[in-house]
């Protein structure tokens, strides 16, 4: 059963087209991602799904219902983690959950019973009565997620869940999201981090300028649009395009970035040996597995994070 089904979905603000006719379908239990740079239309799409932004064109059904006519019923079953935390700073940590639960019409007893386990899940039990402002960025994010779970949603929407967090906080958060996924919560998230998309998403769409440019599992997208490995070469050159000739014929494809060359190859170490054998000496060389970043670069000619 699909929880979300959008066909020819569009969002426009005046002349500006934020989402330009996309088709998406998310099944129950799935972990689905929108990957793309800022301004790709990810947040606009999420807000339409969350029934807080009217659809400009096409059709959208969430839990089989039309957001235009059944917004409160859809929202009752959703958990929303917005890009900026938007916690209630006039309330304490625990109160944020209590009050938010009441917005869903839950009884005080119900809300109270859920608060403890959720704070534990968010690893915030010690911060129960703390002022929200005193929390770290990672803690605030986890509290926002806990808050979004107060109505026991079957679908959780996360808009850039780890943007602005340090690496350690990101890993803690990913771990929490894995647990939710394991418990059968359908996750839909947006991200411009390819590692996050690889970690969390069963399936994803790559978005660029309001359109979907590719769709599939992270593995299949990489297999389809990139090679197995990537050799990164950094030269002492003002313009790396000048050095493309030096590596001609070694890779299936060469991508020129401002500060390095990317060689798409099957065997990175083998390619590096060939480069060295030609007498070409880069400042530095790195062999890595191909990632979604490479997929994006291939599809759009641009990097995800500018």
């Amino acid at each position: 059963m699909s929880l979300i089904r959008g066909t020819g979905l569009r969002k426009t603000f005046g002349d500006f087209v934020a989402v330009d006719g996309i088709d998406v379908e998310v099944a129950a239990g799935e972990s689905f991602g929108f990957l793309g740079p800022n301004g790709a239309g990810k947040t606009s799409t999420m807000r339409m799904i969350g029934a807080t932004s009217p659809v400009s064109g096409g059709q959208l059904r969430v839990f089989g219902m039309d957001p235009a006519t059944h917004a409160p019923a859809i929202k009752a079953r959703l958990g929303v983690v917005p890009q900026t935390d938007a916690l209630d700073e006039e309330l304490r940590v625990r109160e944020n959950l209590l009050v938010y639960g009441r917005y869903f019409g839950l009884s005080r007893e119900q809300v109270r019973a859920r608060t403890g386990p959720l704070l534990e899940f968010a690893q915030l039990t010690e911060k129960t009565d703390a002022v929200v402002e005193s929390l770290s960025g990672g803690m605030k994010r986890r509290l926002t997620i806990a808050r979004a779970l107060i109505n026991e949603p079957s679908l959780l929407l996360l808009d850039e869940p780890t943007t602005g967090l340090d690496p350690q906080a990101r890993h803690v958060l990913w771990d929490r999201l894995f647990r939710l996924k394991r418990d059968g919560v359908t996750l839909v998230l947006t991200t411009h981090y390819m590692d996050e998309a690889e970690q969390l998403c069963d399936r994803l769409v790559v978005m660029d300028r309001g359109r979907i440019v590719a769709e599939g599992s992270p593995r299949s997208l990489i297999a389809q649009h990139a090679s197995r490995e990537v050799l990164e070469l950094r030269f002492d050159a003002a313009d790396h395009a000048e050095r493309v000739a030096d590596v001609a014929g070694i890779a299936e494809r060469v991508e020129v970035l401002a500060d390095r060359l990317l060689l798409y190859v099957h065997d990175g170490d083998g390619a590096l040996e060939t480069v060295a054998a030609r007498g070409v000496h880069p400042l530095s060389a790195l062999v890595r597995r191909a990632s979604l970043e490479d997929v994006f670069l291939r599809l759009t000619g641009r990097s995800l994070v500018e």
Partner: peptide, 14 residues
Amino acid sequence: HSKLYRSVLSTPLR
């Protein structure tokens, strides 16, 4: 500033 209403509108409140 606090974007309170924005988060409230993510819930069934209209």
